[in-house]
């Protein structure tokens, strides 16, 4: 039914290097969230902290009443059964072929017969379009295929929480839009909580219910999709519209000179907010909200042209 993740005051550093601090957010049960941030801001570290692979320095992560940050090893292994995780490079077991990789969690954690296992594995392989590649070893396939195989393995135990680390990097645009549709359909179907780390602006703008942005060692903003897409906050605005003008530079932050030079530049207007991607069967997801609902409730006028059914995707300059 989906499970809520409550993160409070979380900080993580490696040695003296603070990765991010004071991150507080709640990933609501059954909703799709996207986490954005420039490269190297610790998005992957954040996901690994959520599943207890890395211990935070302080703060708590509460899932079904258990605090991941302080619970025992045994509870941790128990809680992890709720998760399906797709790692950034797929993390397939190199010594097994794709079929055995996807079947692995079923063979370990269920008492299903081999024929039941085969049915489930084939269904998931079909879902990610890998039928015919079952006998290949992970070393023999492309990065995109590895990623899709990782996705199949993450989904095989019907998880309550699904964490994706850049599911769309290394995929071609067509596969990416299929994948986005797949995520929305899956959410409608299994009602799991989704947290997706991505760099793809199109994904971030059209797929999630909520968006978060990690920047400069803290969580710059986290909230409903429409809140961030209509935000005037410089960092959020720059990142979500892929602009060069703004506080983010090539090396994380711009220096004072660069910022001063930009001071009188006119910011391009906010692009219209696109419609959210709907499940392919047309039945709305449980966590889906009316287009423009948040803007209306909060008295914000969305950028002109927003929520136009026929709008073509524009992502700004």
């Amino acid at each position: 039914m989906g499970v809520e993740i409550k993160v409070e005051d979380l900080s993580k550093s490696f040695g003296k290097q603070l990765i991010w601090g004071d991150v507080t957010l709640t990933v609501p049960a059954g909703e799709i969230c996207v986490m954005l941030g420039p490269s190297g801001t610790g998005k992957s570290v954040f996901l690994k902290t959520l599943i207890g692979l890395l211990k935070p320095d302080k703060g708590s992560i509460v899932i079904e009443g258990t605090d991941i940050a302080s619970c025992s090893e045994r509870d941790l292994y128990e809680i992890r059964k709720l998760f399906g995780v797709l790692f950034q490079d797929g993390a397939m077991f190199g010594s097994m072929n794709l079929y055995d990789n996807v079947a692995f969690p079923l063979r370990e954690h269920t008492k299903k017969s081999e024929s039941e296992v085969r049915d489930i594995v084939m269904e998931k392989m079909d879902l990610v379009g890998l039928i015919g590649a079952e006998d290949k070893l992970p070393g023999e396939i492309s990065g995109g295929m590895r990623k899709r195989a990782g996705l199949a393995r993450a989904l095989v135990l019907d998880p309550e929480i699904v964490l994706f680390d850049e599911p769309d990097s290394g995929l071609d645009p067509v596969r990416t839009s299929f994948l986005n549709q797949l995520i929305v359909d899956l959410n409608a179907q299994i009602d799991a909580t989704f947290l997706i780390v991505t760099h793809d602006i199109n994904t971030a703008r059209t797929v999630p219910d909520n968006i978060g942005l990690l920047y400069h060692r803290h969580l710059a903003m986290f909230g409903p999709r429409e809140m961030l897409l209509s935000s005037e906050e410089p960092v959020v605005r720059q990142f979500l519209n892929a602009q060069r003008v703004g506080p983010i530079g090539m090396s994380e932050e711009k220096d004072a000179d660069e910022l001063a030079a930009e001071a009188d530049q006119e910011l391009p207007p906010l692009p219209p907010i696109p419609m959210q991607l709907e499940p392919s069967n047309g039945i709305p997801r449980r966590s889906q909200r009316e287009p423009g609902e948040w803007c209306r409730e909060n008295g914000i006028t969305p950028p002109p042209g927003s929520f136009d059914q026929n709008m073509t995707m524009t992502t700004g300059a």
Partner: peptide, 18 residues
Amino acid sequence: GARKIREELDAMMVLGID
């Protein structure tokens, strides 16, 4: 070591296996 940097060990722990 190769399994570690390919995140196979992490994936294993996430799948509930020590």
